[in-house]
Each structure stands twice: as structure tokens, then as C-alpha cells.
Design a protein around this nucleic acid. Structure first.
Lengths: 151, 151
DNA sequence: CCTTTAAATTTACATCTGTCACCTTTCAAC
DNA sequence: GTTGAAAGGTGACAGATGTAAATTTAAAGG
């Protein structure tokens, strides 16, 4: 999973980021307690992850005396976008549409979200192709059975 | 990244699956050559990955004599859906909408895909809430600044 | 039935991840 | 100042991953 800077953020680091993003800024104590609540992690685990995130440039430590304050450097929205891009880049382009459909079906979306998506789609429809090519194998530009593939 | 059976499929295994899915069925030789083309991997690398996938139950080996034939057991569509679900489950629910928006903007979608998405959205709009709650921290049910978060 | 050679299987190994225990430095209250 | 509890930092370690070399097995030709 990538963050806004295309650094790799691991799953557990991602959990820490979520908390930091939501808190906006935090002390290690607050964060440790939150992670203990959310994941049952020991103090050390959170500390380690926090440090790894600092090294990766995803979080900064600020303040001159203890306890220090930690803040996210990479943005949540951007990181989420990067992670999503990363995922779809590893999937067959031809099936992106139905995958997105599945996501939309299962997520809760607000009226505003839906309106935004509709607007984007309407715009996109103007230039959308009839077919999207499979980009899995060179030469082989078409996956077998698009609908009921698989078995 | 999860596959259709919720087994973890690693990134490089995922690349192998893409090839297998697209080929439908394959011999190790074909697969090895494809992976060599696509990723520059040595024979061994592909073999190892193929075996790990067999152990994970994502691929079956069939045939009674060499060369054997390998086929995907888990479906591509289902696995993609599982991977997407997995990703969104680790993100703030509140921002799923804009993340999806970003994905739609950057992917190529066919007219049919767009039509399907529109239909789903129209349906969903009937019962969509005004707001989606942040699910990152307990108690703390709202992320700061939804629009221009992050700095 | 031997040998060659492709296919299959094992072993290897450095790095990355998840998880943590333990050591070190400070602040803050005697 | 001394000291004890927080806060901060380091080292550790098992298991997962990426990548591949080495070894075994079996099919096919002579």
C-alpha cells in the first residue's frame, strides 16, 4: 500500500496513520492508548510503528520538550488515492469497472458522494470507449469470457 | 491483498495469477516464459510462486503426465472484489466516496461499465444517508475537516 | 533400458513485517 | 541535586516475501 509520497506503508502502519489522521495531531501517549484500544497492541508496538512512519517521512515529530507532538505529513486523502491507484494498477484494466461496481455496492456513500460520482460518470461517458482492453499479457489483448469468467 | 477465498495473495503472486487468469490454463513453461517477458523473472521465481499459489489453493495442477496443466481455482473477478474490499476496509469510511471518485477519474471505463455504475448509484441514492460517519476511532466519530484535510 | 533434457520440487537467503521486551533519557517533584 | 515515572529509542525475533540456485524426477529418443 502506498502513501501520498509513494512510500510503502504497511498494513499495521496504515492503522496507525488512520488514528493520527483522525486525531490531527497527537502525543505518543494518546496514540499508544488509542492503538491499544483499537488493536490491542502493546506500547512498544505502537512506538515502533510510529518511528518507522517518521523514518518513512509520513509523520513528523515536533515540539522541544517532552511529550512531543506527532503530526501527519502525508495527507489522508492523497494516501488513500495512492493506495487505490496502486491496487488497480495491478489488476486487469478490463475488469476495473465491475470491481468498482462491487465496491460501490458494498460501501456506504453519502448523497453528496453519489452526486459527485454521477457527475464524474456523466462527464466520462462523453469520451468512454466501447470496450476496454485487457492489459495482463502482451499480445494477448483480451481475457477469455468477460462476464462469467473464472472457473 | 486477498483472493476469492480470503487467502492472502502477495503482490508477486498476484502478477502470476493475472497471467494464469488471462491464459485460462497453462503449462509451467508457458507461464515461465510469460513471466520472464512481463517481469524479467527467472524460471525459478515463477516456479516458486506457482507452487505457493497451489499451496494456497488458488491454482490447481491437473493432468497425469508431464507437462502438467495449471488452472486457476479462485476467480479473477471475485479475487479483485476481495482485494478491493480488503483495501477499503482499512480506510476511513467517510472518505470512501472521494477515493472511489479518484479511481473512476483515472481509470478507463467502457460505456457499459459507466452505465452499470450509473444504475447502481441511482439505486443507491434512494437510501443513501446525508453523511457517512468516520470509523477510525471509537467515540471520535468525525474526522476533522472533510474537504481540505491533512496539512 | 540408458541418456538427455525438460519439468517439478527443495532448499536458500536477504529483506520486510508484525510484535514486543528492555534500555535510556527527561521532566517534575521532592 | 536525586530519583522515579513517563517518554523515547534500540535490539530482537519469528514468520512472510521476493528472488533464485540446486536437486530430483520423469518423459522421450536412440
Amino acid at each position: 500500500m502506498k502513501d501520498a509520497k509513494n512510500e510503502t506503508i504497511t498494513d499495521s502502519e496504515w492503522e496507525v496513520m488512520r488514528a493520527i489522521w483522525t486525531m490531527g495531531k497527537t502525543t505518543s501517549r494518546e496514540l499508544i492508548d488509542a492503538m491499544n484500544q483499537l488493536q490491542g497492541w502493546s506500547d512498544s508496538t505502537t512506538k515502533t510503528l510510529l518511528h518507522r512512519l517518521i523514518n518513512k517521512g509520513a509523520v513528523v515529530q515536533s515540539g522541544t520538550s517532552r511529550p512531543f507532538v506527532f503530526k501527519p505529513i502525508v495527507g489522508e486523502k492523497e494516501s488513500m488515492a495512492a493506495a487505490a491507484t496502486d491496487l488497480f494498477d495491478h489488476m486487469c484494466a478490463m475488469r476495473a469497472g465491475s470491481t468498482i461496481a462491487g465496491v460501490i455496492k458494498t460501501r456506504e456513500l453519502s448523497q453528496a458522494d453519489i452526486a459527485e460520482l454521477q457527475a464524474i460518470l456523466t462527464e466520462k461517458a462523453k469520451t468512454a470507449p466501447e470496450q476496454v482492453q485487457c492489459n495482463c499479457l502482451p499480445g494477448h489483448h483480451m481475457c477469455e469470457e468477460v462476464e462469467e469468467h473464472g472457473q
